[in-house]
Computed example of a mutant assay.
Amino acid sequence: MQPKFKRTYRFAAKTALFSTLGVTLIMGVFLYYFFEVNWLLLALLAITMYIVSFVLIQLRIERLIYKRVKKIYDDLTLLESTSLSKSAITTDMGTLTQEIDRFARDKKLEIETLKVREQYRKEFIGNVSHELKTPLFTVQGYILTLLDGAMNDEKIREKYLKRASKGVERLSYIVKDLDMITKLEVGDLSLKMEVFDIVELVKNVFEMFEMRASKNKITLTFDMDYSNPIYVKADKERIQQVLANLIVNSLKYGNLKGTTEVSIENLIKNKVIVRITDNGVGIEKAHLPRLFERFYRVDQSGARSEGGSGLGLSIVKHIIEAHDEKIYVESQFGVGSEFSFTLEKAE
């Protein structure tokens, strides 16, 4: 569909007026000195000349300038049909310049965004490949060793099969977590909103990791005695997953005989904020902006020795954002970390 021109006649009208005034003045002076001035004839001549000049100038503008301006708009429309083709074309140079400047700024921003996304895509593919490659090669190595004759030894067979099983389990974690993140991003994972006691849920998560905390000699505790329930409205299963991931992280990077403390505070009238604080190794400031990226690890060797998919914090962020809530992190290297997120209070 051809775009509609928004024609302007100001240039032709002004040019025709100036031309008419100039010629009429010259004709008036000429007639005054050499002939008798016929003012009526002179007025008719001026009016006729103005109309003829206006029509000729406007036609020439439309033939010359309008076509060139249209060509510029057509070129831009091919690149950005959604923004330029919806508006009428104008020959006003100021408006056209603003349109082109805006288009250039938008394109520059789009190119920069694409560069960032391309870099992120490369890192993501590299991370996925590395994360999958490690357990795959581990499983393959144990199986090949068994096939080469080691399975005849009962002790080695059992040990290698257990190690291969752990590798497969890690692969399963990665695939399952990636599937969950994808569903959260596209909105396919529906939330089952319900009212529940967040204090009771935290206690359940403490019980889940009681043995692991005891092994690391880390104390799981509340900041105070919550004798009364605190009811929130959210997806209970997903919030339990959030709490589990954050507490597991605090256990992974906590110091021996350290503490992981949970506090639940009123934020505003209809919001509470849940804080998970530890006195572990902490996180350097440079890592904080990328902490919730997929597969991003602060300590490569330490994180892998503890296992997991490397997607825990990314899942946490997506779950909280799916609830239209916020998640925060504060950390000081060598002192400890605090992760906190908001939830809607139940009426």
Rank of each mutant, 00 (worst) to 15 (best):
P3K: 06
K4D: 14
R10I: 04
K14G: 00
T20W: 00
V23K: 06
I26Y: 12
G28E: 07
F34D: 03
L42A: 02
S53I: 01
L64E: 08
K67G: 05
K67T: 05
D74W: 03
D74P: 08
D74G: 10
L76K: 00
S81C: 07
S85C: 04
K86Y: 07
A88Q: 15
T90C: 01
M93C: 00
G94M: 06
T97P: 00
D101N: 15
R102C: 10
F103T: 14
R105T: 13
E110A: 15
T113N: 13
V128F: 09
V128G: 01
L144N: 15
L144P: 02
L147G: 10
L147I: 10
D153A: 02
E158M: 12
K166G: 12
K166F: 13
R170K: 15
Y173L: 13
D179S: 11
E185R: 09
L201Q: 11
F206C: 09
E210F: 07
M211V: 14
R212A: 10
A213S: 03
A213W: 00
K215I: 11
N216D: 11
N216C: 07
L220K: 03
D225R: 14
Y226S: 06
Q241R: 11
L246N: 05
Y253W: 10
L256W: 05
I268H: 09
K269D: 14
R275S: 10
I276R: 05
V281E: 03
E284C: 09
H287A: 15
R294E: 12
R297A: 14
V298D: 02
Q300N: 09
S301R: 15
R304W: 08
S309R: 07
I315R: 04
V316Q: 01
H318V: 01
I320F: 02
E321K: 01
E325D: 00
I327R: 00
V329Q: 02
G334L: 06
